[in-house]
Every structure is written in C-alpha cells, then in structure tokens.
Design a protein around this nucleic acid. Structure first.
Length: 315
DNA sequence: CTACGTACGGGCCTGTTATG
DNA sequence: CATAACAGGCCCGTACGTAG
C-alpha cells in the first residue's frame, strides 16, 4: 500500500474548507445572501453559521426539538424533496407559502386538502418550481397518504434501524437505511415487512441520495452522497474510495440484497465521507461544508489543487 | 413458465456554463 | 449579448439475466 504510514491517515480539514468558502469576496457575499448569515470575517465561525442555517445539525442551545411523530416525518420528507434540484435560497423565500399549502406538514390535513382542492397539487408544484416540481409534489402527496395510514412511522423507522444494525459497523447504519428506503428489495421486505398501512418501505420520490437528506432532516447523522460530494471526495481521497468499494458491495449484496450500481456508489461515498471526517466534527457538518465548497467554489471541471485535508494520528 | 432484479436510455424542463 | 449545451436526481419503459 502506498501513501502515509499505517499510524497516520488523512482527514478533511474543516478549517481549510471554511477559509476557502469565504476567501473570495463575491462568493462570500453570495453565501451570506443565500443563507442569511452575517459577514463577520472569521471563516470558521461563518462556516458554523452556514451549517446551522442549513438546519440539519441538532443545535444544543436552541430548544427547537421536534417531537418524533408523523408530522415531523412529513416535514423531513417534504423538505428533502423540496431540496431536489433547486436552489435552496430561492425556495427559502417561498417557504412559508409552501408550508401553508402543505397544511403545516400535517399529513392527514394535506392529503384531505388534496382530495378536496383540485388546484392544490398544481399550487404546490408552482411554489416549488423547477424541472422536477411535478414529480416532487406527487411524491409529497404519496408521503402524506402513506403517513396518514401509519400509526407511528418514526418508531417503525427506529425499529427498522435497530433490526438492520446487526452485523454492521455503527457508522454504516444510516447509509444502509437510506439505501433501503431508496430501493428496497422484495427479499428484504419479506424479511422485515413495513408497518401495517404501508405496502413497501420505498420512500416516494427518493433514491439513496434524497433518502439520506430525509434521514438527516430527522437528525440522523449521514453523509449524503450527491454529485458534489462524490466528485470532491473521489478527487481528494482516491485511495479511501478504493478501500471502501469492497465494503459497499458487501453491504449492498449481503445486507440489502441489492446489486444496483447507484446504491453501491451511494453507499461507497457515504462510507468514504464518514471515514475522512475528523473526530471533532459530525458527519452532517462535514458533508454540508464539502457540499457548499463543491457548489460555490470548487466547481465541476474547474477544481483547484488546494489541499483540503490534513494528516492525523490513527484512531 | 413466473418472479424478481439490473442496465440502459429517454423524459422531465430550468438555471448555470460554454460557445458563437 | 444571445443562443446552445449541459448538469442534476428520479421515474418509467424496455430488454435482458437468473433462480426456482
């Protein structure tokens, strides 16, 4: 094996990423505008604000803890779908309208409203905008109908997680559940059927990527394997990608009974992301910052040779 | 044969980036 | 400056593969 000795390995440098995110004036201004954060000069503190503004990391000081009920689940699903292929900052300006159209994320009220009000689906789609608006809206309706039929989806999900946990490393469980919700295989569903009221564990409108976003909205720590993440991690940590490849295949095949390239790739980059996150940083924060770097600074085919990692002693 | 799974390509249709 | 090309995630239909 080439590279650093076995007692050392490379992890993301949150400091370097933060500095690079806010180094250039125009990009700094755009990030401040898009996420409503203050330009206070200190990139590490601004990165914290950015991550907090993305709303997926549980913050200890604010007491905005959501109850573990179907409304919370519907909110997490709807926001994940709302993030699909659209500029988040644009959505934020229409968010309150979106929330009233979705009956404040009450799945029963929303599915009833859709039955009664024939224009509701179109209104939600118009509110979302973008190429996937119709598909995302349809998926939200399916989520609402599904949740209206299930007593306690959140708890069912926790039980599913506990069941899937067997024979799996701690950090691997969230990507596995995301992959399962994205493309559940029949064999697995026979083994672990969905709660009564649901035909399948399939998360409407979501593959492994959006399902990771969904779980993160429920404050499950995850690395969402989207295109920016895959591209940058593949560029920065090619040896880790190679190392995780076999593990991702085993998890897909033996745990999920799935051979899909999409699922294996998604699992692989989730594992890579977690492996290169430093100890003092949670996965969601690292993921949010790498994503922002990919979306705003290190754009596709125009990546710099900046070093975004550091070498640390083995765990 | 059935049941199930995977690969692949087209469609969606807009904001961003490249090209004339 | 206007126009063309592309990116991005998911769904669907089709073709094909494998196990029982």
């Amino acid at each position: 094996m080439v590279g650093p000795s076995a007692s050392q390995f490379r992890v993301l440098s949150i400091e370097r990423i933060s500095e690079s995110l806010f180094a250039e004036r125009t990009i700094r201004k755009r990030l401040c505008r898009d996420y409503g954060i203050e330009d206070i000069g200190d990139p590490v503190k601004m990165a914290d604000s950015l991550v907090r503004s993305m709303g997926q990391v549980r913050s200890c000081e604010s007491g905005t803890e959501y109850p573990q009920n179907n409304r919370t689940v519907f909110r997490a699903a709807a926001l994940a779908l709302a993030s699909n292929m659209r500029q988040w900052s644009g959505f934020l300006s229409r968010r309150s309208k979106f929330e009233s159209l979705l009956e404040q994320y009450d799945p029963i009220a929303f599915s009833r409203a859709v039955e009664v009000d024939s224009a509701r689906i179109r209104d939600v789609a118009n509110c979302l905008g973008g190429q996937t608006a119709r598909g995302d809206t349809n998926a939200m309706v399916m989520w609402a109908r599904m949740l209206a039929e299930v007593a306690d989806y959140f708890n069912a999900l926790k039980e599913l997680k506990r069941y899937m946990q067997a024979g799996v490393d701690g950090g691997e469980i969230v990507p596995i559940v995301a992959a399962l919700l994205g493309s559940p295989r029949k064999r697995l569903e026979k083994q672990r059927p969905p709660p009564s009221g649901m035909e399948s564990w399939k998360a409407p409108g979501m593959g492994i990527v959006l399902a990771s976003e969904f779980l993160r909205n429920l404050h499950w720590e995850a690395f969402k394997p989207d295109r920016h993440i895959n591209r940058l991690l593949g560029r920065w940590f090619p040896e880790v990608v190679r190392n995780k490849s076999a593990r991702a295949e085993i998890l897909a095949r033996e745990i999920l009974y799935c051979e899909s390239k999409d699922v294996i790739t998604g699992l692989k980059y989730s594992l890579v992301g977690m492996a290169v996150t430093p100890h003092d940083c949670n996965f969601t924060k690292a993921d949010n910052l790498v994503w922002a770097l990919g979306a705003y600074v290190e754009k596709k085919n125009r990546e710099s040779d900046e070093v975004y990692w550091k070498t640390v002693a083995a765990r």
